[in-house]
Design a protein around this nucleic acid. Sequence first.
DNA 1: TATAGTACTATGTAATACAAAGTACCAAAC
DNA 2: GTTTGGTACTTTGTATTACATAGTACTATA
Lengths: 108, 108
Amino acid sequence: MNIENTKTQMSKGIFEYCILSLIRNEDKYASEIIEIFSKTKFDIVEGTIYPILTRLKNASYLSYYWQESNQGPPRKYYKITPEGLLFLNQLDEIWSDIEKSVKQIINY
Amino acid sequence: MNIENTKTQMSKGIFEYCILSLIRNEDKYASEIIEIFSKTKFDIVEGTIYPILTRLKNASYLSYYWQESNQGPPRKYYKITPEGLLFLNQLDEIWSDIEKSVKQIINY
DNA sequence: TATAGTACTATGTAATACAAAGTACCAAAC
DNA sequence: GTTTGGTACTTTGTATTACATAGTACTATA
């Protein structure tokens, strides 16, 4: 039980919410998402991002399309679906509840 | 992929932090902790609490002692160790980072 | 053609919550 | 004394998700 692992465990489960949030207002491809995450204190790697995107796509919360790139191979852009938006709105609520509950417990 | 499971996954990993926080200022036994949690929007059950307490004890972050009860069987009180306090201070930092990172991403 | 950079796919392993089953102790009722 | 109900603790198999890793594929450049 070390601090790095605990940090990972604490972040685990929040990534889906974060990724959907990123895609809420603008379609994105995986490497773009990884780049954005790298600017936060989250440590997330591609081995995590891709399965999450696939999972969300399989659940019909995201759709995708391919777009040529002038910097390398084509990119797979993800776009949030109406169902995805509904789901995400619920996740907003849940995250808010979690923050409040943690605060409640820390200040107990 | 349903909302209940996602809620669970989002909370998962935070419970260790919460339990250590509860024990920070005052020794506690399991059922007491469950009772406090029941007043928050966390859904946590004994099947989770006990293994967490055991894990933290095995990592030397908690110590314990038995105390007779006049309402039933004896209670196993947990007390945070100096190492546990150090660890918890780190978790305070990590949680703060996580909150900031989520906010950063939501507002991206 | 080979190399470098960019992008995507898949999987075995590790970690943690939960449902569930079970054990144990004490007090009250019979 | 025995049974019942309430209280408290222990254990474990299953489900889920992140990560390290290995690999494939496309485009531009040397």
